[in-house]
């Protein structure tokens, strides 16, 4: 079963048209003057319906945003560190919101601890031009956390071993 079957059948009850739209646009909109018309032509529906469906998927969160999606590495953000923090459980949401809002943090997540192997419950992906840059950002997060910082670590990636971006495939 593909990820899209799931999206359709279990989670969002997406209509076949929405599924097809996701497939057609996950690699980007066609760079032609009227991209939604072009999609409509490919799908055999009206451009108004395409725009309506895109708007609805954005409203209900299936689409997070519509963007010119930057390639951070190419733009000079050569270092990324997965920073992990041990903060009081009762404060994790409030602190997570603050850290997630920092402009050098791309993702911030609450994840479970695994004692005794793993005591960290807050993850923040930090981007910088260099590792020194990332370390400065880490210091800023530590200042923000103050006494709520009960330990942290940073895990720099050394290699991407697998990365598959497009996950929704056409049905066989």
């Amino acid at each position: 079963m593909s990820a899209c079957d799931l999206l359709c059948d279990n989670v969002m009850q997406l209509a076949e048209c929405d599924r097809q739209l996701i497939e057609l646009t996950q690699g980007g909109l066609p760079l032609v003057p009227q991209p939604y018309h072009e999609l409509a032509r490919q799908m055999g529906i009206s451009a108004d319906e395409v725009m309506l469906r895109i708007q609805r998927m954005q409203d209900n969160g299936v689409i997070r945003r519509i963007a010119a999606v930057p390639n951070h590495y190419k733009l000079g953000f050569r270092a990324n560190g997965m920073t992990v923090w041990n903060v009081p459980d009762e404060k994790v949401s409030a602190l997570g919101e603050q850290i997630g809002a920092l402009d050098f943090v791309s993702h911030c997540y609450h994840r479970p601890r695994h004692p005794p192997l793993w005591h960290y419950n807050l993850f923040a992906m930090v981007h910088g031009a260099s590792r020194d840059d990332v370390q400065d950002h880490i210091a800023a997060i530590a200042r923000l956390l103050g006494d709520d910082n009960h330990g942290s670590d940073v895990l720099f990636s050394t290699r991407i071993l697998k990365k598959t971006g497009l996950r929704i495939r056409a049905r066989e």
Binding site: A3, G28, L29, I63, R64, I66, A67, V69, I168
Partner: peptide, 12 residues
């Protein structure tokens, strides 16, 4: 990398 929608794959 592209110009277009960013989908929330956590929903899948």
């Amino acid at each position: 990398t592209r110009v277009g929608p960013v989908f929330d794959h956590h929903r899948a």
